[in-house]
């Protein structure tokens, strides 16, 4: 296979040449620093390069959107971060932003306008769906997911917060895999436990951790474990029917959020199921199905 090295275009360089990109890729702190989520960032950039999207990143000029500060109640710190980022983005005349993090997505899309930052903001699930609809991504030529079981875990900040339920599912559909819905999905989806700044603190005392509860549900869905599914609390009666059959191995929990990624992967590890269940982001699944990993 021939491969080529990617020189990720930096916004400062484009600006120096007097160019503006079609879309700015907002990497986010997890995408830039978290070892696991860096692989998602790299997968998404491979897709952008493969399709030939005119994009750029801020590189070291990017700073935390302020989401965790805002959710934790530190409005002052949030606004400091937001104004700093808005100054950067407006300085470059950015019109459109894509990000793989639902928290960055929600914050920039919904909370920056009140502080003077108005952009068209899209989440990478919607962006990937558009590429698929345009025929630019076909999920051919790489790893085959045909017949493998995949269940999608809804991110709260993508789903309930912004009503994006179908885009990630449409992206997964192109893989021709066996897609299963968890009982608590879409509007009724159970949080991974990391939102609202929980990612950075120990949980309050309780019976179990939220990510364990969610991982148990995801595993039971992939395994077709009817007993576990029957005993789940908090499922509304519009829940999908229980899937039958047993796990064939190599199943996937698909996520679209860096914090869900951490929480679900920890949950799977806690249940000692890393050998047959993997947690992947949508961009990783598409990049490997398209055969872009080099």
């Amino acid at each position: 296979m021939e491969k080529r090295q990617i020189n990720v275009p930096m916004m400062a360089d484009l600006a120096a040449r007097g160019e503006t990109p079609e879309v700015l890729f907002w990497v986010g702190c997890a995408g830039a620093f978290d070892d696991r989520y860096k692989r998602v960032t790299r997968a998404f950039v491979r897709i952008l390069e493969h399709v030939g999207v005119n994009y750029a990143v801020l590189g070291m000029e990017e700073s935390c959107t302020g989401d965790p500060a805002k959710r934790a109640g530190n409005e002052f710190l949030f606004q400091m971060q937001a104004m700093q980022n808005i100054t950067t983005l407006n300085g470059y005349g950015i019109k459109k932003v894509v990000t793989a993090c639902p928290h960055c997505f929600n914050t920039i899309k919904n909370e920056y306008p009140a502080l003077g930052g108005e952009y068209e903001v899209i989440h990478h699930s919607t962006f990937l769906q558009q590429l698929i609809n345009e025929g630019k991504v076909t999920a051919e030529g790489g790893e085959s997911f045909k017949g493998r079981r995949i269940t999608f875990h809804d991110s709260c900040y993508l789903g309930r917060a912004n009503n994006i339920y179908e885009a990630p599912r449409a992206v997964l559909e192109v893989l021709d895999a066996d897609l299963l819905e968890m009982k608590r999905c879409k509007t009724n989806g159970l949080c991974c436990g990391a939102g609202g700044a929980q990612m950075w603190k120990e949980p309050e005392p309780g019976k179990k951790d939220v990510n364990i509860e969610r991982a148990e549900e995801a595993l039971a869905t992939l395994d077709g474990n009817a007993e576990v599914l029957r005993n789940l609390q908090g499922a509304e009666s519009t829940a999908p029917a229980l899937p039958a059959g047993s796990n064939h191995g190599g199943s996937v929990i698909a996520v679209a959020c860096p914090f869900c990624m951490t929480m679900m992967a920890d949950g799977v590890k806690n249940k000692e199921r890393e050998s047959d269940v993997q947690v992947f982001d949508l961009a990783e699944l598409i990049a490997s199905a398209e055969g872009l990993n080099a």
Partner: peptide, 21 residues
């Protein structure tokens, strides 16, 4: 500029040695 204790100068390290088919 990040919720974790990483150095801001490492923010772009993810792009090192990145290849695409």
């Amino acid at each position: 500029g990040a919720p974790w204790a990483f150095s801001p100068s490492d923010r772009f390290n993810w792009a090192d040695d990145l290849f695409v088919t």
